[in-house]
Nucleic acid binder design. Structure first.
Lengths: 235, 235
DNA sequence: TCCGAAACGAGAGCACTGCTCTCTGCCACA
DNA sequence: TGTGGCAGAGAGCAGTGCTCTCGTTTCGGA
């Protein structure tokens, strides 16, 4: 305990690099064959050693998948945050569109990783505690747009909206916990926008649009426009 | 060729029953463990015979899954059609709500089957031709509401909508092929409603709402209400 | 009514999977 | 500098999808 966790002993550093390398290889396999076919043995083989060696770094296949899930959430979050940060703070519609397009672009570039985090939950269910932090980066980003809009007066509650009492109460609770100053009726619309964003991206990534919509870019733009209007932001 | 296909020879009948029994058993396993863990051997074992016997009826595990997918589409379609048919034809909002609630109810009652058809596409991708017919029953139902509304004048194109030329052209094409009389701008909204419906149900079924929304019924009602308004139907 | 063909289920076997356990060599650390 | 602990190898277990072969049963056309 004298000099206990010398943050990075050489051994720890090598180990961390190994972990990264395994994840990178697994990610490559993922991109080629999807999550359900991800084989620990194949990953090990690909790296030139035997399958049991992987278990020095990940206790199980599920643990590897969980690590990939967390990385995916973070990659998506980073991409969206970067895109949103590049837009003028006062341009709420622009910020919203930036998030939407960043999510879609990342999903199209990494469809299997997107499926990993926004597709069917694979086993009974997973989502250990470690994943919820990275998972909320997108919602925080969207929520911040509402908060800023309300703070400057650019956004206000939709006039003629009626919320069921329980819904209104839940929205108020979320507002108090995370998004100060956003009226329940507006927050509800924000939640719908969040749902719709991932619904739209999932439909595209999971081939629901095949044979229906050809110009996917234009169609997505239209959907973003509709959502922008729905939350009351001025384009 | 004299009495050639005596539609149901005894053998054919027994065979068909066997197929149904295998599917039923597989469906049971599915409900317990999800699609990725569905084991042909386990299904066979459960039915009291050896795994190779299954291959007399299904050429592969994927073929069994495809059969289950088609059944799932049909079960969902039947449920939605029945619910919608029970509503007064002139009550467009009621018909729309009936479809939405039927989809959600069926999904909650059969989450793994829902995941099978609206979750991540499992292998590289499948969706053989046989699945697209049953898959369109919901869209036809939703489209018919728009068609009827336009025919009676209860629905009209949203006034201030601007569609990109390619989107407008694609909507016009879909209208001509399937939904006569529905203006492009309204059809586009209908497509968004369709996307949003399954986006909302998927979010609920795939646990995205955990820790966010408690009263799922009220929340879904609210979403349906917003969509009803969005397509211009009077509640 | 009878016989050939077709269908059927059993069983062994192949190549693969995740995971465990044991063994050995080596090297970073105290 | 000596060594404890870590890394990787390898064998092995139980499970998977799928193939092939082999008797048996049973259907149905002549």
């Amino acid at each position: 305990m004298s000099r206990p966790t010398r943050a990075t002993t050489l051994r720890a550093k090598v180990r961390a690099e190994m972990v990264e390398e395994i994840k990178a290889t697994a990610r490559r396999h993922l991109a080629e064959q999807g999550a359900s076919n991800l084989s620990l043995r194949a990953v090990a083989r690909d790296m030139g050693f035997v399958s049991s060696a992987i278990y020095r770094y990940f206790a199980s296949r599920d643990e590897l998948l969980t690590a990939l899930i967390i990385d995916a959430y973070n990659a998506l979050g980073t991409a969206a945050e970067a895109a949103e940060a590049a837009v003028d703070r006062a341009d709420l519609a622009g910020r919203f569109a930036a998030v939407c397009h960043a999510v879609r672009d990342w999903a199209r570039a990494n469809p299997h990783e997107y499926a990993l985090i926004y597709g069917t939950p694979v086993p009974g269910y997973r989502a250990p505690q470690d994943t919820i932090g990275p998972a909320t980066r997108i919602t925080n980003l969207l929520g911040a747009i509402l908060v800023d809009g309300c703070a400057t007066g650019a956004l206000r509650a939709p006039a003629d909206e009626w919320l069921a009492p329980t819904v209104a109460a839940e929205m108020a609770h979320i507002r108090d916990a995370m998004f100060p100053g956003v009226p329940p009726a507006l927050l509800a619309r924000g939640l719908i926008a969040w749902t719709q964003l991932f619904g739209a991206v999932s439909f595209e990534i999971f081939n629901r649009l095949d044979g229906i919509v050809v110009d996917r870019d234009a169609w997505f733009d239209y959907q973003v426009m509709a959502l922008t209007h729905f939350i009351g932001a001025q384009p």
